[in-house]
Design a protein around this nucleic acid. Structure first.
Length: 573
DNA sequence: GCCGTTTTCGGCCCGACTGTTTTCAGTCG
């Protein structure tokens, strides 16, 4: 599956063209094509073989031919040609915040600097060649120097759960600044993306109060460096090497600013295109017809004025949501409140830290109707996995407790290991004693698409398996996991009455958003579990639900929105 | 280079902030 590789080729083409000063619209086309390929759930090889490349929005004749060429030869001639025109390490400079293509081209051509390392050396030694480049005053030099250091210290994007906590703290702080009315986190955090680049905060206040609020924000605890501080916008780097931006807007513009700041950029571009076609203009202050503001104080008003259904933040990725909203065909997305239970949690019988009783009590406290205890199987030795004997004992303990619980259903399950070849860690007769069987791969997670798909399908076809846990096995910012060809996996799941899990832990979020959508389209049911190893981790459900919403899931697509009766019926089927 | 409920050609989103090239280009989101 070469989707990611191809995405990188297109991104590289775009970077090189930018440095060389090509037409910005053509550059944008390559960026779009790259994103389209990466977002695709199916292997690009299959789409190519089916002759359907140009059906992908953003892929046309030229980019389609380049995909074909790459799959046949492993290279794109036009890309190679561009690479020959630019020093090989020059594009890495584009990753430095504040360094764009124009500047990179200038320091290459005028100061003969060809890599990030050389740039650092030149700044450090105060090289005359660099100081003579027009636009390189002492402040700019210092800014770039700090940016390079910032870049080195940041380990990429934060995970969703980490960003959520940081944003909550910042929001609480800004809310207390005098004059601040509403404060909300926007950006990719509000869209529920699996990783977050920086924290975007929005604040409602009068124009008069805005500069003071920005000033206070730049002096809030944990601020290490101020990147920008104007009359309505401030930008800081926090101690945790995270950038946070605050924008202050008046009430009449709050909704427009929230939409603008929530993004995605690509979604916003779509909205503005629609506005222009309707003879209007959309910016962060509102939707305008001439000088008259027709919408802006809240988000729904803007979508309505553009002739669209309200688009929930999680869908704003330019993946067809604007077209669907125009046709009135957006899905009625699942809500956190729809979740009636959790079907994959651990206890101190394996590597969890709490008792069966404690987990059941915590689930009841959350208002759930059911919970399935699914501890590890015997091959998970480091996790104190259960062998046949201990599993039988645990089932007894669960059944005994279950009888004492009023209005709450406690199910006996297991998370059985799926071996490399798709066989399971327990025999079928052992699994037959359980109410619910989650099958998960924990080892050999670097399998390619073909083997991984075969492995999971074999597990799916096992008569006792009802759920595939964290299907790819990826760890966000940790390991990529198995390459999944989601369509055949989802079709097999649908045919065998097996649900595919969205593991809600923010380290996993697996299935990922685009796979969720493809799985549902292929007819599969989803189950959203927390895989909690302690009671408070049941709260991770919110991240799983966000991921499901990003995958266009409705409550009907998700097994654990069912009543106990419906769940039992599904289990008996 | 892509795309079409006005178009197969001619468009293609919008504004804040910074540093410095004294009137704006570059970058970012």
């Amino acid at each position: 599956m070469k989707n990611t590789e191809l995405g990188q080729v297109f991104a590289s083409i775009a970077d090189l063209m930018e440095i060389l000063g090509a037409d910005p619209f053509r550059i944008n086309s390559y960026r779009k094509a790259g994103r389209a390929v990466v977002d695709l759930a199916e292997p690009i090889e299959d789409v190519t073989a089916a002759g359907e490349l140009q059906k992908i929005p953003g892929i046309g004749k030229s980019t389609g031919a380049k995909i074909d060429e790459y799959l046949k030869t492993g290279k794109v001639a036009a890309h190679q040609e561009l690479l020959g025109k630019v020093p090989p390490k020059l594009p890495e400079m584009l990753a430095v915040p504040g360094l764009g293509p124009k500047t990179v081209a200038k320091i290459w051509k005028e100061a003969k600097i060809t890599s990030l390392g050389e740039l650092e050396d030149a700044i450090e030694s105060g090289a005359a060649s660099l100081a003579e480049v027009p636009g390189f005053g002492p402040k700019r030099m210092r800014q770039i120097w700090e940016s390079i250091n910032f870049m080195k210290s940041v380990g990429g994007r934060m995970r969703l759960g980490e960003a959520r906590q940081l944003a909550d703290e910042l929001t609480a702080f800004v809310s207390k600044i005098p004059g601040a009315k509403k404060v909300a986190a926007a950006g990719s955090l509000r869209r529920g993306k699996e990783t977050i680049g920086d924290i975007d905060l929005l604040c409602q206040a009068t124009k008069a109060a805005a500069p003071k609020i920005i000033e206070r924000f730049t002096k809030s605890p944990g601020v290490q460096r101020v990147l920008a501080a104007g009359g309505t916008k401030g930008s800081v780097v926090l101690d945790r090497e995270v950038q946070a931006d605050l924008r202050v807007v008046p009430a009449a513009s709050y909704g427009a600013a929230l939409a603008y700041f929530t993004g995605s950029k690509e979604h916003n571009v779509r909205l503005r295109e629609l506005a222009v076609k309707a003879g209007m203009k959309l910016n962060e202050y509102g939707l305008f017809k001439g000088d008259r503001r027709v919408a802006g104080k809240d988000e729904p008003g803007i979508y309505k004025a553009l002739g669209l259904q309200f688009v929930p933040p999680e869908l704003r990725e330019d993946r067809g949501e604007v077209q669907a909203a125009r046709a009135g065909k957006l899905p009625d997305l699942l809500e956190l409140e729809d979740i009636r239970g959790d079907l994959h949690v651990h206890t101190d019988w394996s590597d969890g830290v709490e008792t069966i009783e404690a987990m059941a009590a915590a689930a009841q406290k959350r208002g759930y109707a059911y919970l399935a205890i699914c501890d590890h199987s015997k091959s998970q030795i480091q996790a104190n996995g259960l062998d046949e004997k201990r599993l039988a004992e645990q089932v007894q303990a669960i059944r005994k407790l279950a009888k004492t619980l009023k209005g709450f259903t406690l199910l006996a399950g297991v998370e059985v290991d799926v071996f490399k070849d798709g066989r399971l860690d327990f025999e079928a007769d052992v699994l037959a004693e359980l109410d619910f069987v989650v099958a998960s791969a924990h080892t050999a997670l670097s399998l390619g698409a073909k083997e991984a798909t075969r492995r999971l399908i074999r597990a799916i076809e096992h008569p006792r398996v009802r759920c595939i846990g964290h299907p790819s096995g990826r760890i966000i910012n940790g390991r990529p996991g198995m390459e999944l060809d989601i369509e055949p996996v989802a079709r097999a799941a649908a045919a065998n009455g097996v649900a595919l899990e969205i593991n809600s832990h923010y380290y996993r979020l697996d299935l990922r958003d685009v796979h969720v959508r493809a799985a549902i389209e292929a007819g599969a049911r989803i189950v959203i579990n927390t895989d909690a190893h302690r009671a408070e981790e049941l709260g991770m459900m919110r991240f799983g639900v966000l991921t499901a919403r990003r995958g266009w899931a409705t409550a009907a697509d998700v097994i654990n929105t069912c009543s106990v009766g419906a769940l039992r019926k599904w289990l008996a089927a």
